[in-house]
């Protein structure tokens, strides 16, 4: 182990890069510079506003202190609602994603058609952002928690299904073969040889997604899909900055606690 490392370090002190490497680095640098120059040159920005931005941001923060806690009850209730949205949506999505992962995994899918169907569902769910899903469901169901839950579910299914599908594809084939050899039916082979191997991933991705969904639920309200975002939007619209500050602090607390809980659960379960 030690000898290859030391030779490469020695080579590096002689001539740090081979000519080809040097050329590649130069080309990369050129591309990056060109991209940045293009972006700065052509972006539609009123530059005086940019120079003014630090002052404006500072001013905004100035107006936020001291935070106003008179609405704390409503804020706490909104936090609980946020938590419920994330939890219910994650719970449902985990179970919905199971059959989709099953048909989207190459080694378990019944046939080519189901494989592509599964992959299509996963890709479309994953590439549309939660907020865009929320826009759609608010338009359909009207503003409220329901639209939020469904939006989070739709986005989570792709995430969970993709990771679960990969876990299914990576299972050890040998127990599967052994159980097939005992004359067990397909459904029982899935139950005994595939499910146990995928369970750790199932919990891990479920917890991970719950953590992500908690963050996403905090912004659903900005498009009217429930949770703490609704009162945040209200406070911003009425320029009630001290309340905004309280809400922001509440969000930080929620997210940090959620992350801690997720980490604890992960240790406990896996």
């Amino acid at each position: 182990m030690t000898s290859p490392t030391s030779t490469s370090v020695a080579e590096r002190t002689w001539a740090r890069y081979t000519p080809q490497q040097r050329w590649k680095r130069f080309a990369t640098l050129l591309v990056v510079t060109a991209a940045v120059v293009w972006a700065v040159e052509s972006i539609d920005i009123i530059w005086p506003w940019v120079w003014d931005a630090p002052a404006q941001v500072g001013d905004l923060f100035g107006r936020m202190v001291p935070p106003d806690v008179s609405n704390l009850r409503a804020i706490l209730w909104a936090l609980v609602e946020t938590l419920n949205i994330a939890t219910i949506a994650t719970f449902v999505a985990v179970f919905v994603s199971l059959p989709i992962a099953y048909i989207a995994a190459q080694n378990t899918t019944p046939n080519r058609f189901t494989l592509w169907l599964g992959r299509f569902i996963l890709v479309s769910s994953r590439s549309v952002n939660t907020l865009i899903w929320a826009l759609l469901f608010v338009a359909i169901f009207g503003p409220g928690v329901l639209a939020g839950i469904i939006a989070i579910m739709f986005r989570s299914i792709g995430f969970l299904g993709k990771l679960l599908g990969e876990a299914i594809e990576e299972i050890d084939r040998r127990p599967v073969e052994a159980l097939e050899a005992t004359g067990a039916s397909r459904a029982k082979v899935v139950l005994y040889a595939i499910v146990p191997q995928v369970i750790p991933t199932f919990f891990a991705v479920g917890i991970l997604r719950w953590d992500i969904n908690l963050r996403e639920s905090t912004v659903l309200g900005l498009v009217g899909a429930g949770g703490i975002g609704v009162i945040l939007q209200g406070a911003i619209d009425t320029l009630n900055w001290p309340t905004v500050a309280t809400i922001l602090l509440a969000i930080v607390v929620l997210v940090v606690l959620g992350e801690a809980l997720a980490a604890w659960l992960r240790r406990k379960v896996i």
Binding site: A53, D59, L60, L222, L232, I236, I251
Partner: peptide
Amino acid sequence: IVSRSFHPVIVAILFVKAVGFGPV
């Protein structure tokens, strides 16, 4: 921690209030 806790949309809405609509 603070920059990770806030969803970018929340940060965006604050910046929009501070520096106005647009790419900045």
